[in-house]
């Protein structure tokens, strides 16, 4: 009897307190569910890269995951294939060129759009945003026919020029965002403090777009380096960029050499991403506590 009463009192007492606990448990369950879902999506997003990296280390002569044993044999194998090295050098050269040129063009065009009136400015602005939307395959075939019309033979230069269409809109956009964050009166203040026009640009304007410029340059670098669709139309069999080389290799081969090349490309992209992240971070932290 006493036990029953005790249980009753215990239940009665726990009831009001029970509710928030239940809600807390529900909240925790929901948070866990959310985290599990996010982890799944993350796995989905990263899986292909992780698999590529892992299977490049396999000792088997065919691609398999998980890899059987661990070896760097396939990376050594790469050195015996000069065509991959040539392609890598071509790709990196074109990418570096595209990065430098599109950064310069992006800075100039961004400045022009941001602060000078000129005829056709709004058209230019709109073209920069629509250049993202045109399918690269259509652009590729268009460039193929246009270059033929102009009688321009395939060369690293034609490829670089083609890549500018992909990269310049991004650098312009980044520069514009940087300039939008610049207080125009800071430039007037600098002039008022005795700075000549080039000094104003160097000390005030350029620092405001430095982050966007570096991020834009590295974005252009990997966009050009990774591009396949445009390159497929613009290159010849003698001049193949690394993605084109892999794409063609894949048609006939299925060995871990490709995963080794892929891993090299991923590492290359990762370096660029870290730099972009750093720079954008620096831009975000402009004026923030250095101790943080």
């Amino acid at each position: 009897m006493t036990t029953a009463t005790e249980t009753e009192t215990a239940t009665a007492a726990s009831k009001p307190a029970g509710k928030p606990i239940a809600a807390g448990a529900g909240g925790r369950a929901r948070r866990l569910l959310g985290a599990a879902f996010a982890a799944l999506v993350g796995l989905f997003l990263l899986a292909p890269v992780l698999v590529t990296i892992a299977s490049s280390l396999t000792t088997t002569s065919y691609v398999t995951f998980p890899p059987k044993g661990l070896t760097l044999h396939w990376y050594a194998e790469l050195l015996n294939r000069p065509e991959f090295l040539d392609s890598f050098l071509l790709s990196i050269g074109v990418a570096a060129g595209a990065a430098v040129v599109s950064t310069a063009l992006g800075l100039a065009a961004g400045l022009a759009i941001h602060r000078y009136p000129f005829p056709g400015k709004s058209v230019l602005d709109r073209l920069f945003s629509s250049a993202f939307a045109v399918p690269t395959i259509v652009l590729g075939i268009g460039l193929l026919q246009w270059y033929a019309q102009l009688g321009m033979a395939s060369s690293p230069l034609t490829l670089l020029l083609a890549h500018l269409v992909l990269t310049v809109p991004y650098t312009v956009r980044l520069v514009l965002a940087g300039l939008a964050g610049l207080d125009r009166s800071a430039e007037l203040a600098a002039a008022g403090l005795g700075a000549k026009a080039p000094q104003v640009f160097w000390h005030v304007t350029l620092p405001a777009v430095r982050g966007p410029l570096i991020a834009g340059a590295f974005f252009a670098l990997i966009t050009s380096f990774d591009d396949l669709t445009i390159a497929l139309f613009v290159v010849t069999t003698d001049m193949q960029t690394l993605p084109v080389r892999i794409f063609n290799y894949l048609q006939y081969n299925y060995d871990p050499t490709v995963t080794a090349v892929g891993t090299v490309m991923v590492l290359f992209a990762a370096v660029a991403v870290v730099i972009i992240e750093r720079v954008v971070g620096v831009a975000h932290l402009f004026g923030a506590d250095p101790e943080h």
Binding site: A104, A108, A112, Y116, F118, L124, L127, L143, V165
Partner: peptide
């Protein structure tokens, strides 16, 4: 403004608009 924008305009005109018209 036009001077600063001209290289980018050239890229868009010669490598984006012209190829699409060609197409």
């Amino acid at each position: 403004g036009l001077l600063l924008a001209s290289p980018a305009i050239a890229v868009l005109a010669l490598l984006f608009i012209a190829p699409l018209f060609m197409l």
